[in-house]
Structure formats: C-alpha cells, structure tokens
Design a protein around this nucleic acid. Structure first.
Length: 531
RNA sequence: GCCGCCAUCGUCUAGUGGUUAGGACAAGAGGCUUUCAAUCUCUAAACAGGGGUCCGAUUCCCCUUGGCGGCACCA
C-alpha cells in the first residue's frame, strides 16, 4: 500500500480558487488517477487572520464544478452533498470533507515539541523590526538576506529570563550548515541548493500556531503523500522542507514543479491581469469541460495533434514527462475558441438550461411558479414568462431560440445580448441598416412590402423554416427581386443587427404576428426617412 | 543584491546532431452565403547572441543577454 501514488492539493483559503491552484489540482488529480492513486484535498488554514470560510467554500465548489473530486477526508456526517455545518463553517462535497490544518494543531504541536527537545528548533526573541533592519543591511552589502542566528544558542537561563519578561517569541528551525541539498525534480531534473544560504526559518509562532513550511512537512508525511506537484514558485521552499524531513526522520518524497501561469506581460498571473479566480470564469459562462481542457494545455501537451480532451481522456494520456519547463501565458483567445467548441457540441437542452440564468439576470425572463417538471435521467426544467413582452415561453421554445445562437457564441454570458431581438418588445436600429449594399431605398421598401403582403397571406402553420424558405425563395425569383435586396432588409427588420442568424430561422421563432409587426415597422422607418 | 529556474512563429507548443523546423489559437486572403457565425482552402509568422565540441548544430557544453520566481512571525 505504501507504493501507492498519493497526491494532494493544499490551497490556503485566503482568496477564491485561483487558476494556478485549479491547474495544480488538475495535474495532481490526473497524475493520481492515471496511476490508480489517491488525490487529497488539504485546506491550509494555519493563518487564521487571513483565512475565511467563504474562500474555503469557493475553493471546494470550484473543484467540484471542474469535476476534480478528492478521495479522502473526514466523512460527511450529514448526508446531503453540500451542507454548511453550524458554528464553524465547513462543507462536504460528496462523501468527504477536506482535511483542515486548523483541526490538526495537536498533531503539529507534538512534532514541534520533538524538534525543540532535540535542539533542532529553538525559540527566537528578535523583534520583527530588528529583523527587517538586518535584512536591509544584508541586501546593501550584497549578502543573501537571512536570519543571523542571534537567538540560536541562548543559554537555559537566558531563555528563562526572556520568557519571564514576557518577551514575544517564535520557533525557528535550525538549518544544518554546509549542506548541499540535492533533489531530483520530476520536471526539471537535478536541483541543488546550498544550506548556508538559508537562514533558520520560523516554523511556528508558538506551539499552537504552526506555519506553512512546517505544517506541510508533517501533513505530507502523515498523509503519506508520494508526489508533491506544485507551482514553480515553491522551488525554493523545497530544500527547507527536505531538511526538515531529515530532521524529523521522515522519508523524502518526489517533487515536480510546474511552470507558472503568466499574464500577458510574462509575470505570474495576478489580479492586475484581470480575472484570476475560477469562479469569475464560471460566471462569464465558460464551461467546466472547456476550462479543464484549456488548463491541461497550460504547460502540458500530449505530443500528438489532438487538442480536444475529455477529463477521462486526459487521465488516460497524462504524463509528467509531457509537462514543459517554461511559463505559459494565459491566452484567453484560445480559451474562447475551445469554449465555443464545447458550446457547439453541447446538447441543446443542456445549453438552454445553462443559459437561463443569464436571461433571468438580464431581466428577459422569469420562472413561472409551479411549472417544473423532470426530464427523465436529466434535469428539472420549467416554463418561463418573458418579462418585456408579457408572454409565456415553454422550455421547448426557449431551446429553439437558444439554438439560433449556439454556433455563434463563445461563452454563455453573450446570450442575452445576441438574443435581445427576441426578448425585447421593440428593437432599435438605424434605418440605413436596412439598405442592402447600395440598393435604392425605395426598392428596399417595395421589396419589404411585397414580402409583407406575402407573409400576411400565409397561415400561421407555414411559419416554419424549411417550408418558408422554399416559398420565399420562389417569390424572390418570381418577382425578380435579387436575393440580397430581399433578404438583408428582412433580417435587419427582425434582428436590428448587423450580424445575426438568418431571416428564416428568426421568423420561425418569432412567428407570424411579431414578424409582421417588425416588417411593418421597418417599412415605416423607410418611409419616414424619405426626404 | 543573493539564490534558483527558464529561453522555437504574436500566443500555446511539437521536433531533430543532417528536417521544406510541424500543429493549434490569433492575424490576413479566398470559397460557401442575405449578414454574422460555423465550415473549407490558402498565406504570412520562430530556433535570443557569442564561443566551443563536431564533417555538420536549432538540438550537446560554456558564457553573455533577457525573462521570471523566491529571499515574511503568508501560503
């Protein structure tokens, strides 16, 4: 069992789920699954000041949204899948909750005491301001900024006195001198650090307040993590952690440092580059499958020409050897492309379901109470009322409307804007937009009038794309109108847009009455516009 | 400043001691078409520089340059 691959993601709940963290989670997940191992989630909330349950919730929900599930954790005592516990907030997703460092303080205390007893760690009473000054002066001399070791060898009496005075202290780990710390990074190869360049690091504020570098070492050991896959920004923490593992008698483990995700200016992706939280992308209407596919290619590639991967395919193909060494710029155009791809491939019922919230938010539709029903093996759907026109719309009709734009949108949030012509009562546009190329205005108006009359004569049931297209095309030929001169103005009259779905498709969803209203409106506009 | 990591089209990248240096996104041109989108075809676009090693380096080594990361009583 000890040979089992076990990976983990260890986010701190001091912010929403960052893209970098999500990608690291994905790589850890893929690596574990590929090798029939376990993937673990551990919330690193040792910094109580900055940690917030809200962020923990965001992290868990984000991972769940992506379909990155963890295989261990405290068992959910209350069966519902997503539940906020009273008192201390926490939540479970599926069967397991996350491990939380804040709940393991006693464990760390034991090991902290052990290091102290063995004189591998010591109390330090230096004030922060003192240390800062020290670092400053070291920098000006060109020396590596590190702790001087002032408190490293305090006598027992001295220590007692300082404690008695109530002087504030922290616990430092004694970094062994003259050590070349070597380790093999699975992505970068052999790496080496000189221990003399590392100062004795603070591993806890006190026995009950461990700090990151210490808690990670303990947990990775106790949770039997086999591979640490994390961002490149942790490379320089690695020698410290290895030295601590040695001091505690823990076996060492494998490391793999991922290239960073960069902003367009090639610096580590951060807020000033725009959205860095996964939930912002979710809100914009990126699909989890697309997000996953996109993130996997940030630093990894399958060495084949295949670009589109499901989660299962990623698991099958993933290998650490396919991970590159240099940072990758977060290229949103590529994300848009791949998201559009997934939008186009999606079943229309599912797509419609996902678009509804955006239409609700835009104030176009609202739920009709008690109209819910279940699609077998799928999800609950319901009917809606269109706010602007005060008409009902069934889920089926809504599907037809969304389908108009399925191949035109890149992300779900675009849907209200491109479909406003359907949900609004009246549309606004410049009369000149009705003019096809350089066609004469009167000609355009005449064409519209011919089409108007023709449509008026048609029964409601003929307002169906295939049928209608044939009939109108016949009419155009018969009247010798010219396809563009006839169809462009109709399309504009119906959509009010430079670009939109075709006129027949729009007519089908708009139906007879609304179609004719709009054509009449267009004719009126053109008449007014004549000098 | 110190330590470390990295370096192929604008971007993500494949690749090799001898290649027309390949693909994708984006860009441009064209086809289809009433518009947009989708789709199809085509075009332009890269081995940071300098030394070695070698018959031969984009590839191996060194240096330079550049970029980035870390250097907390954050993680």
């Amino acid at each position: 069992m000890s040979n089992q691959i076990r990976t983990r993601i260890a986010p701190s709940p001091t912010g929403n789920l960052h893209l970098g963290t999500a990608r690291a989670a994905l790589f850890n997940y893929l690596f574990a699954k590929k090798h029939d191992g376990k993937f673990i989630l551990r919330i690193e909330d040792t910094d109580l000041e900055r940690s917030d349950p809200r962020f923990e919730k965001d992290i868990l929900e984000g991972l769940r949204w992506l379909g990155i599930t963890w295989d261990e954790g405290p068992i959910n005592p209350t069966q519902p899948p997503l539940k906020i516990r009273g008192g201390k907030e926490g939540l479970y997703i599926g069967k397991f909750g996350p491990y939380r460092q804040s709940e393991r303080i006693e464990t760390y205390k034991k090991y902290l005491q052990k290091l102290l007893d063995e004189n591998k760690a010591y109390y330090c009473f230096c004030a922060e301001s003192e240390l800062e000054k020290e670092r400053e002066s070291q920098k000006t001399v060109g020396a590596p900024p590190k702790y001087s070791g002032k408190c490293a060898n305090l006598g027992a009496q001295e220590l007692k006195d300082l404690k008695k005075q109530g002087k504030k202290s922290v616990i430092r780990f004694r970094i062994p001198k003259n050590r070349k710390v070597k380790f093999k990074d699975l992505i970068r190869g052999d790496l080496e650090f000189d221990s003399n360049l590392i100062g004795d690091i603070v591993i806890a504020k006190d026995l009950n307040t461990p700090l990151y570098n210490f808690a990670v070492v303990i947990d990775d050991y106790l949770m039997q993590i086999s591979h640490i896959i994390r961002g490149e920004d942790h490379i320089s923490n690695t020698p410290k952690q290895i030295l601590m593992q040695e001091a505690l008698g823990f076996p060492t483990l494998e490391f793999a440092h991922l290239p960073l995700i960069l902003g367009p200016d090639r610096t580590k992706l951060s807020k000033r580059h725009g959205a860095t939280s996964l939930n912002e992308y979710k809100k914009t209407g990126y699909l989890p499958e697309a997000m996953l596919n996109f993130m996997a290619f940030l630093g990894w590639n399958p060495k084949t020409k295949k670009e589109v991967f499901s989660k299962e395919e990623l698991v099958a193909e993933f290998a650490l050897t396919g991970v590159g060494k240099s940072g990758a710029i977060f290229n949103i155009e590529r994300l848009d492309w791949i998201n559009g791809l997934y939008v186009r491939r999606m079943g229309i019922d599912k797509l419609t379901e996902l678009c509804v919230p955006y239409l609700v938010e835009a104030g176009y539709i609202q739920k009709i109470p008690n109209s819910k029903f279940q699609i077998p093996n799928k999800f609950q759907i319901q009917n809606y009322k269109m706010i602007k026109t005060d008409k009902k719309i069934s889920f089926k009709d809504l599907e037809k409307v969304i389908a108009l734009e399925q191949e035109r949108i890149k992300k779900l949030s675009e849907i209200p804007k491109v479909l406003d012509f359907y949900f609004k009562k009246d549309i606004e546009y410049e009369p000149d937009l009705l003019i096809w190329k350089k066609t004469d205005k009167n000609k355009i108006r005449k064409n519209l009038e011919i089409l108007q009359k023709f449509l008026e004569s048609l029964p409601e049931k003929d307002f169906e794309k295939k049928n209608l297209e044939k009939k109108i095309k016949n009419l155009i030929a018969k009247e010798k109108m010219g396809v563009g001169e006839a169809l462009w103005p109709v399309r504009v009259a119906l959509s009010g847009k430079q670009g939109s779905p075709g006129p027949f498709e729009i007519i089908e969803v708009l139906k007879k009455e609304r179609t004719l209203d709009r054509i009449r409106g267009a004719i009126l506009k053109l008449s007014k516009n004549i000098p």
